[in-house]
Amino acid sequence: MARFAFIVPPLTGHINPTLSLGNELLKRNHKVSWISLDPNLKDLLPEKGQAIVLPIDMDEEGKNKIFDHARELQKKKVYGIDSLKFLYEEVLTPMNSLMMDGIENALEEIKPDVIISDHQIFSGAIVSFKKNIPYATSVTAPASIKVNPSFPKIHEWEGEQVVAFQNKYGISGNVRLDCSELLTLVYTSREFFGEADLPSHYKFIGPVIAPRSQRIGFDWSKLAKMVQNRPKILVSIGTTFDHTQKQQFFSKVVDALKDENITVIVVSDPDLFEFIPDNFIIQKQIPQLEVIQHMQAVICHGGNNTVCEALSYGIPLIVIPIAYDQSFVSSCVTDSSAGIRLNFNRFKASHLKEAVHSILTNNLYKNNAKMIQRSFEMAGGVNKGADYLQTLVKN
C-alpha cells in the first residue's frame, strides 16, 4: 500500500479527472489525499479519500479576489491572448504563492510516496522537487503543452513565467518543473492531440469523465413525443458568452434550425429566447452525459469537457470557439475531421444550417468521430493512469 497525494486548483474541470483516478487508486488499497484551496473539496471526494483544504493567509478582500478571478477564468470572460496574461498574472502566480507554504505543511503531515500535481499548480512541483518526493503532473488542459507553430512565442512566454516563479522560490536554472520528467498524464489521446514529438514520459490516457454526483431533471417525455426518426442535436455553450452575446448566438441557432426536421436541445435560460420553436427543448441545466448519448451531433464552443464527452460517444461536432484553449481544442476537432469549425464573429444562420446538414449527411465526420472514440478507449483511462502512477512508488 502506498500514499498518493493530488494537488489541485479550485477549478471543477481540474479536480474531476483526479476523482476518478484517485478512486481507482483507492480500489487498489492505496491511501489517497487531495490538497486544494477549494472549501467544498470534502464533498467531492470518493469514499475513503482524504481532503486537506489549505488555510488562506490573507484578508477577505484578497481571498475573494483570487476566487473571483478563478471563476472568471473558468467562465472564459477574458478572451484570446489576453486570457493567457490574465491566467498567469491574475490567477496562477498569486494562487501558487498562496498555496506554497500550505502545500509544504500538508506534505509534512501526510508524507506521500507519490505526488500528482496539476500542471497549473507549479508550487506543488517545486515543493516535491525540494523534498525529493517523486511527482507526476496532471494535465487537464492539453492546450497548455501544445506549441502552436503559428505563435511559438506564446509557449516561450508561458515558460518564462513558470521559471521566474521557480527562481523566486529557490529553484535556480531555466528548466521548467511544471511538467514532471518522471510522468506527465495527459487526459486525451495522442491521436486527438496530434503531437508526435513529446518525450516518452508524456502519457496520453484519454479523457477521464467522472459521473456527475448532482442529479438534474430532464423532460425525457417531451423528447419521446417528438418525431423519433429525425436527428437530434445538442447545443451547449457553457458560460462562455455574456448576456447579449448569448442572445445573438441563440438567435442564429433558432433562425438556422427552427424549420428543420431536427430535434434541437439547447442548454440555456429560456428567457433568452423571443420564441421557442416546436422542435426545440430548452433547459438551464441538463444531465449532459446522459443526453449526449442520444444525439447525432453537438454544437459547442470548443470547451474541452463537452468536446471529449461528445467524442467519447463517437458524436461529431460543430465548434465555434472564442477563448485561447477553445481554439486549440477546436483545431483538434477539425484536424481529425471529426467536425466543422465556424468563426464566432462572422458566422451567420445560413452557415450554421449548412454545417448541420454536412455533419448529418456526410459520414466522414461520424466515422472520424468514431475513430477518436476508439483512440480514447485504447488510451486506457483511469486503469492505465493508475498503472503508471504505481510505477513511481519506490520499493
Rank of each mutant, 00 (worst) to 15 (best):
W157Y: 12
M226V: 04
L364V: 09
Y324P: 05
K130S: 07
K203P: 14
H155M: 08
G124F: 03
E60M: 10
V162H: 01
M58P: 04
L25Y: 08
L41C: 09
M226H: 01
Y88V: 08
M58S: 08
G62L: 09
T18G: 07
S33E: 11
L317D: 05
E377C: 02
E195W: 13
A70G: 02
V235R: 11
L37V: 14
G381F: 00
K65I: 04
S236H: 01
E108R: 06
R190P: 14
V91P: 02
N29A: 08
V53R: 09
I216Q: 11
G194H: 08
K222Q: 02
I281S: 08
I110N: 02
T391Q: 09
F280H: 07
I262P: 04
T140S: 14
Y365A: 02
I103Y: 02
L45G: 08
T361D: 07
V91Q: 03
R190C: 05
I145S: 01
A369Q: 06
F344A: 02
I340H: 01
A338H: 11
K111A: 09
K27S: 11
F273A: 03
E195K: 15
V382A: 03
I216E: 09
K258T: 00
N132T: 12
A323P: 15
E104G: 02
P149Y: 00
S189D: 13
L44I: 08
L182N: 10
Q50Y: 14
D101T: 04
N174F: 10
M226K: 05
F86T: 11
